[in-house]
Deep mutational scan, measured.
Amino acid sequence: TSIVNVSSSLNVRSSASTSSKVIGSLSGNTKVTIVGEEGAFYKIEYKGSHGYVAKEYI
């Protein structure tokens, strides 16, 4: 489990790309479970499925 480190919110994306669809967002200090990594993104558990967040904010 890791913590989201942002002051406002962090986009959760459908794939490991800044141009991919935003499927949701997480607020600062939210706990997330990392299940993998791809480039500059972590794959996380998100709403019963998976999403991707930028590593620099975790």
Rank of each mutant, 00 (worst) to 15 (best):
residue 49 S to A: 12
residue 29 N to G: 15
residue 34 I to S: 01
residue 42 Y to I: 04
residue 8 S to Q: 12
residue 44 I to V: 05
residue 28 G to L: 13
residue 52 Y to M: 00
residue 35 V to G: 01
residue 9 S to C: 15
residue 22 V to F: 06
residue 56 E to L: 10
residue 3 I to Y: 11
residue 22 V to W: 05
residue 32 V to K: 01
residue 37 E to L: 06
residue 1 T to P: 11
residue 17 S to L: 06
residue 33 T to A: 07
residue 50 H to V: 13
residue 50 H to R: 04
residue 40 A to I: 09
residue 18 T to V: 12
residue 36 G to I: 02
residue 8 S to Y: 11
residue 35 V to L: 14
residue 11 N to D: 15
residue 50 H to L: 09
residue 47 K to F: 10
residue 9 S to K: 13
residue 24 G to M: 06
residue 27 S to R: 13
residue 12 V to E: 01
residue 49 S to V: 10
residue 24 G to K: 02
residue 51 G to I: 02
residue 58 I to T: 05
residue 39 G to F: 04
residue 1 T to C: 15
residue 15 S to I: 05
residue 53 V to E: 00
residue 23 I to V: 06
residue 30 T to M: 11
residue 41 F to M: 03
residue 4 V to Q: 08
residue 52 Y to C: 02
residue 48 G to Q: 06
residue 10 L to W: 07
residue 33 T to K: 12
residue 4 V to N: 08
residue 24 G to P: 01
residue 47 K to E: 12
residue 15 S to Y: 08
residue 23 I to G: 00
residue 27 S to F: 10
residue 9 S to I: 13
residue 55 K to W: 03
residue 41 F to S: 02
residue 3 I to E: 07
residue 46 Y to W: 12
residue 47 K to Q: 12
residue 21 K to R: 13
residue 40 A to D: 14
residue 39 G to I: 02
residue 42 Y to F: 09
residue 50 H to S: 06
residue 38 E to H: 07
residue 30 T to D: 11
residue 5 N to I: 15
residue 41 F to R: 00
residue 20 S to R: 02
residue 30 T to Q: 11
residue 35 V to W: 05
residue 2 S to R: 13
residue 33 T to D: 05
residue 49 S to L: 10
residue 19 S to V: 08
residue 19 S to P: 05
residue 40 A to L: 10
residue 13 R to A: 03
residue 28 G to P: 15
residue 20 S to N: 02
residue 2 S to C: 15
residue 28 G to D: 08
residue 26 L to V: 08
residue 38 E to Y: 08
residue 46 Y to L: 03
residue 25 S to W: 15
residue 52 Y to D: 00
residue 12 V to G: 01
residue 33 T to C: 12
residue 25 S to K: 14
residue 21 K to L: 11
residue 46 Y to N: 01
residue 53 V to Q: 00
residue 1 T to L: 10
residue 46 Y to I: 03
residue 35 V to M: 07
residue 32 V to Q: 01
residue 6 V to C: 15
residue 31 K to N: 09
residue 53 V to K: 00
residue 30 T to P: 04
residue 41 F to Q: 01
residue 51 G to S: 02
residue 46 Y to F: 13
residue 38 E to G: 03
residue 11 N to R: 13
residue 11 N to Y: 13
residue 16 A to E: 02
residue 16 A to Q: 02
residue 46 Y to C: 04
residue 1 T to F: 06
residue 31 K to L: 13
residue 35 V to C: 07
residue 57 Y to P: 05
residue 53 V to D: 00
residue 36 G to T: 03
residue 49 S to R: 12
residue 4 V to S: 08
residue 50 H to C: 09
residue 3 I to N: 07
residue 31 K to V: 14
residue 47 K to G: 11
residue 15 S to F: 08
residue 43 K to S: 03
residue 24 G to E: 02
residue 3 I to M: 11
residue 26 L to Q: 02
residue 15 S to N: 08
residue 22 V to S: 06
residue 39 G to W: 04
residue 14 S to N: 08
residue 29 N to K: 10
residue 23 I to S: 02
residue 42 Y to K: 01
residue 11 N to W: 14
residue 27 S to P: 15
residue 4 V to A: 10
residue 29 N to M: 12
residue 41 F to T: 01
residue 22 V to E: 03
residue 13 R to D: 00
residue 7 S to V: 12
residue 13 R to Q: 10
residue 53 V to I: 13
residue 30 T to G: 06
residue 58 I to D: 03
residue 47 K to M: 14
residue 10 L to E: 04
residue 14 S to I: 13
residue 3 I to V: 12
residue 18 T to D: 12
residue 26 L to G: 01
residue 41 F to P: 00
residue 23 I to L: 09
residue 6 V to D: 07
residue 8 S to T: 14
residue 1 T to H: 14
residue 31 K to P: 12
residue 26 L to W: 03
residue 5 N to Y: 07
residue 55 K to Y: 02
residue 48 G to R: 04
residue 34 I to K: 02
residue 50 H to W: 15
residue 40 A to R: 08
residue 39 G to E: 05
residue 56 E to A: 12
residue 24 G to L: 06
residue 44 I to D: 00
residue 43 K to R: 10
residue 33 T to I: 13
residue 1 T to M: 10
residue 12 V to Q: 00
residue 26 L to C: 04
residue 28 G to R: 14
residue 51 G to E: 00
residue 12 V to H: 01
residue 29 N to W: 14
residue 29 N to Q: 10
residue 18 T to E: 13
residue 57 Y to M: 10
residue 44 I to N: 00
residue 35 V to I: 14
residue 4 V to D: 06
residue 54 A to Y: 11
residue 20 S to H: 04
residue 46 Y to S: 00
residue 35 V to P: 00
residue 35 V to A: 04
residue 57 Y to G: 12
residue 9 S to P: 13
residue 52 Y to G: 00
residue 4 V to F: 05
residue 8 S to V: 14
residue 58 I to Q: 03
residue 47 K to A: 11
residue 11 N to K: 15
residue 35 V to D: 02
residue 28 G to K: 14
residue 55 K to E: 01
residue 24 G to T: 03
residue 54 A to K: 13
residue 47 K to W: 06
residue 19 S to K: 11
residue 46 Y to K: 00
residue 58 I to K: 04
residue 19 S to D: 14
residue 31 K to D: 06
residue 4 V to I: 11
residue 9 S to Y: 11
residue 47 K to N: 14
residue 40 A to Y: 07
residue 17 S to Q: 06
residue 5 N to D: 08
residue 43 K to F: 05
residue 37 E to F: 05
residue 16 A to H: 04
residue 42 Y to V: 05
residue 25 S to Q: 15
residue 32 V to F: 08
residue 2 S to A: 15
residue 51 G to K: 01
residue 21 K to H: 10
residue 6 V to W: 06
residue 54 A to W: 11
residue 47 K to C: 14
residue 29 N to P: 09
residue 18 T to H: 15
residue 23 I to Q: 02
residue 30 T to I: 09
residue 52 Y to R: 00
residue 29 N to R: 09
residue 4 V to P: 07
residue 33 T to H: 09
residue 38 E to I: 08
residue 36 G to N: 04
residue 23 I to P: 01
residue 50 H to K: 04
residue 22 V to N: 03
residue 58 I to N: 04
residue 7 S to R: 11
residue 2 S to L: 14
residue 31 K to E: 10
residue 29 N to Y: 14
residue 23 I to N: 01
residue 42 Y to H: 02
residue 26 L to P: 00
residue 39 G to N: 06
residue 17 S to V: 05
residue 21 K to C: 11
residue 16 A to N: 04
residue 28 G to I: 14
residue 17 S to H: 09
residue 58 I to L: 11
residue 9 S to R: 14
residue 5 N to P: 08
residue 33 T to R: 12
residue 25 S to G: 06
residue 31 K to I: 14
residue 42 Y to S: 02
residue 57 Y to W: 09
residue 40 A to Q: 11
residue 37 E to Y: 06
residue 50 H to A: 06
residue 11 N to F: 12
residue 24 G to A: 05
residue 37 E to G: 04
residue 2 S to I: 15
residue 7 S to E: 09
residue 31 K to A: 11
residue 10 L to R: 05
residue 24 G to C: 06
residue 53 V to W: 01
